[in-house]
Design a protein around this nucleic acid. Structure first.
Length: 350
DNA sequence: AACTCGGGGAT
DNA sequence: ATCCCAGAGTT
């Protein structure tokens, strides 16, 4: 136990602040409209929440507008080929989200009659919808009085209670403390607390003068709020090395193939390459040709650093198996993650 | 409980 | 260069 008798959050003060300062976001119903009875569309809220998992608002915005333009309803998304969804998701990262997104849309259609479940417990049975996302949808769309705990709230609460240990060790205590503070306007409260974390109580700066819950915040009384949350020690990032082979035919088309359906960049499109290992593997060209070394690209993943030696050659269009030739003008529409767009850029494509 | 899984913006 | 983002699924 790290929190003994935690003080509740002043929800009325938070809501009053939100009524004046709510950010204008494409998937959000403004608090004034919400008060007039306008309900958020669960499909749009769900789509935004999945896109926002470990991803910034700035990165999500254009993807959200693109997706809702192409697929305005959960039925449209469920009817689309997975391949189309992966192509539109390319560049956003964490591609299991895109696979689960598609599976979830089909589950809503086939197992829930085309309507999202209306409780957090029901929502959490859906693919790609976990503790955070289920609570967020239930609160925002159905005003379920449930604690919505994301990375912003971890930080705000760690400061509010001056939590003396990393958040991971007290997650359920924070959830219980937050749960005790949730008001009837649960959706606005959840979004207000996240806005507060994103704007006032930010990772490196805390503008406590503007904070509606500053009067109850322990960290502001004991010193510097940005000392919280206590950070866990993290492992260093290893380096892996490999080769990438860009093959062109006599027309300038590029040879592409699909990655395995699961795992790193699962189901996405790539150019052929070697394994990635701690020491640079021996190069084995996938076809005969006048191979030239075109430089090295570096790509940082969450848990390792990748250095790829980029090679290119013109090769015969036949004799390759399992992939396809893509015209240069079609590369933009392929399901290429950023890593392989860097590889193609090193060869002067894209 | 620890690990896997992207990419980019802010600092 | 480091941090961290409206986390979920797997082991």
């Amino acid at each position: 136990m790290y929190l003994t008798d935690p003080a509740p959050i002043d929800a009325p003060a938070v809501l009053a602040w939100y009524d004046r300062h709510a950010r204008d976001l494409p998937w959000r119903v403004a608090p004034g409209d919400r008060a007039r009875g306008i309900r958020p569309d669960p499909y749009r809220v769900w789509l935004s929440e999945v896109m926002l998992q470990q991803t910034t608002v700035a990165a999500v915005r254009s993807y959200f507008l693109r997706f809702t333009g192409l697929w305005p309803t959960v039925f449209d998304l469920a009817s689309a080929p997975l391949d189309s969804v992966l192509k539109e998701w390319a560049g956003l990262g964490y591609y299991a989200r895109a696979r689960n997104l598609h599976a979830c849309a089909q589950a809503v259609l086939n197992e829930h009659g085309g309507e999202f479940p209306q409780t957090s417990v029901g929502l959490q049975t859906l693919p790609g919808v976990g503790a955070y996302t289920s609570a967020a949808i239930a609160a925002i769309c159905f005003d379920e009085q449930t604690a919505v705990l994301d990375g912003n709230l971890d930080r705000v609460l760690a400061r509010y209670y001056a939590l003396p240990v990393p958040v991971r060790e007290a997650k359920e205590e924070l959830r219980a403390a937050l749960q005790a503070s949730v008001p009837s306007r649960a959706g606005d409260f959840a979004q207000a607390m996240m806005d507060l974390g994103a704007t006032i109580c930010a990772p490196r700066t805390a503008v406590c003068m503007l904070c509606p819950i500053q009067p109850g915040c322990v960290a502001t009384k004991t010193g510097d709020p940005t000392l919280y949350p206590i950070k866990p020690v993290k492992a260093e990032r290893p380096t892996r090395k490999g080769h990438a082979y860009v093959m062109l035919d006599s027309d300038g088309d590029v040879y592409l193939q699909s990655r395995p359906p699961k795992g790193l960049l699962g189901g996405m499109t790539e150019v052929p390459g070697s394994d990635w290992a701690a020491t640079l593997p021996v190069s084995h060209y996938p076809a005969k040709g006048d191979w030239k070394h075109r430089g090295q690209i570096v790509h940082i993943f969450t848990h390792f650093r990748l250095e790829l030696e980029v090679w290119s050659a013109v090769v015969p269009a036949d004799g390759l198996d399992g992939g396809w030739w893509s015209e240069r003008m079609d590369l933009k529409g392929e399901a290429l993650p950023t890593l392989f767009r860097k590889v193609l850029a090193a060869v002067g494509l894209e």
